[in-house]
């Protein structure tokens, strides 16, 4: 039997079918949790935001236009919730000990302003390298990014939206999408390079 689209499932839920809602949660659970984990930086917080996101989806369900796609809407709401969480966290002045200090590139003494991707380690994951170890390194690299940069990077990487779509979802001008995404990729690539280098040196 052909699977129902997200939008159809959501419509059924709006008409009172709770089973459709469960199907939507099941459909997006891993993807959304990974997205939130990358955004907020720790698993417990990601799970909290995950639940809040689905609650918000219900509370805002009459604003969802059935003509639009469900997935970007879900991720945008999740990004908003994640942003709220990060804002609150910053207000509490928690310090993430994993976060690199002073921009995260202290180990890189070159002070180069430009990132050249050809110099960044992006090869297929080494079989010997533990997946969870790699997870940690990614988190460490992301932790050095401002919430704004992290958000746009993850929206592009996870949702693969066009610049126009990102502009609509974030309500920012097209030019800002471009410059912000460039800055985000550069910042991530540079920090990824730094944490990898640190890893190699430690090995």
């Amino acid at each position: 039997m052909k699977e129902l689209t997200d939008e159809k499932l959501f419509d059924l839920f709006r008409r009172g079918d709770m089973g459709s809602y469960r199907k939507l949660i099941e459909r997006y659970k891993d993807d959304l949790l990974r997205f939130l984990f990358r955004l907020v930086g720790d698993r417990t917080a990601a799970e909290d935001v995950f639940q809040e996101t689905f609650m918000q989806i219900y509370q805002s369900c009459d604003t969802f236009d059935i003509e639009r796609r469900f997935r970007p809407w879900l991720f945008t709401i999740a990004a908003n919730k994640g942003r709220d969480y990060l804002r609150k966290k910053m207000r509490r002045q928690e310090v993430d000990l994993l976060a690199p200090i002073g921009g995260g590139d202290a180990s890189d003494g070159s002070g180069a302003m430009f990132v050249d991707l050809l110099e960044v380690e992006v090869e297929q994951p080494d079989a010997a390298m533990d997946r969870s170890e790699r997870d940690k390194l990614v988190q460490q690299a992301l932790a050095g990014l401002s919430p704004t940069l992290k958000e746009i990077l993850l929206l592009a990487y996870f949702q693969r939206l066009s610049y126009v779509q990102i502009a609509e979802e974030l309500s920012i001008p097209l030019g800002t999408v471009k410059s912000r995404l460039h800055a985000a990729v550069a910042a991530f690539a540079k920090r990824w390079q730094a944490v990898n280098k640190g890893q190699e040196e430690a090995a």
Partner: peptide
């Protein structure tokens, strides 16, 4: 891909709690 790849999966408990 490096950013998207992850071992993290949502547990049945999380799905149930959310639902």
């Amino acid at each position: 891909e490096i950013v998207r790849e992850s071992d993290i999966v949502a547990t049945p408990l999380l799905v149930e709690r959310t639902f």
